[in-house]
Design a protein around this nucleic acid. Structure first.
Lengths: 148, 148
DNA sequence: ACCATATAGTCAAACAACTTGACTACCTAC
DNA sequence: GTAGGTAGTCAAGTTGTTTGACTATATGGT
């Protein structure tokens, strides 16, 4: 593949990612969850399964733990997350989603589904399936970070 | 497609985009172009063909023209771009890439090609081609913005 | 059991990117 | 020619993040 083709692929990927991020964010806002930025969504992704510590979050987001701590402050203040004592380490705290936080996570899923449905006009169901599988194959195991 | 599948697709897409951005940035730095952030890359994308005005850039990046102007200041100070008088409008200035700026743009293409080659381990040449065409079909016409 | 060292988290100050507000120079249309 | 709009910049304020310093708890060696 030529350099220019690789760049075209990259640009398309980044354009789609940017647009998707914007749509998910708008969809979440439209469902009544305000005061959140896309960066919070990346935190939710890490918190959702079983909670996480501030340090876990910091690594996941690629920021300092101070920044992660402030982000958690914000989520707690807005009622989306809560700090609970960590069951195995008295120094640490387990950050978990509240009911409202789970509602927001569901809203994000709905918004994502809605955004993806918007691609139906350009892609068949089969192409969409192939796209998903292809991306899952090259997606890094690691964290989702808003690098730029 | 179920909501959770759409979310998995979205997460994979964002993870790949984040990783790709990081790799391109690292590759550009490795080629000796320093003091640049990924955001500058998005500006380059708009400046590269024929230059652009500050207002064009601001719209493209989704920021205020003051922010775009500051970003141009930085590129000029670092020797990647220059402000030239606009041929048709004495109020405006045409921002163009310098030789060093073009060198950086080429470095970004090489870095992108290198990053994409890293996917060869997981994808066949044919799958890569399909991925590129699929993404180009759903990529918005609009600007590439670092929305998050 | 004790001490040295490392880790989890927070507070505070410094910093960087961006926004809002105000202004000048130039363009465009009536 | 004059009124209103647009391109760009300067300055100040806001926001998110980092760097530095500190406390509390954990861990490993002796």
């Amino acid at each position: 593949m030529q350099n220019s083709e690789a760049m075209a692929l990259s640009a398309a990927l980044l354009a789609v990612a940017g647009e998707l991020t914007r749509r998910i964010h708008d969809g979440v806002v439209a469902r009544g969850f305000e005061g959140l930025r896309p960066a919070h969504g990346f935190a939710f992704a890490r918190l959702a399964p079983d909670g996480a510590t501030v340090t876990d979050l910091a690594v996941h987001l690629g920021v300092t733990k101070q920044a992660a701590s402030q982000l958690v402050d914000e989520l707690v203040r807005k009622g989306y997350a809560a700090r609970r004592p960590h069951p195995e380490d008295a120094r640490a705290r387990l950050i978990v989603l509240t009911e409202s936080g789970w509602g927001c996570a569901r809203a994000a899923e709905e918004a994502a589904a809605e955004a993806v449905r918007g691609w139906d006009a350009a892609l068949t169901e089969e192409e969409l399936r192939v796209l998903r599988e292809t991306l899952l194959r090259i997606a890094p195991d690691g964290p989702i970070r808003p690098t730029w």
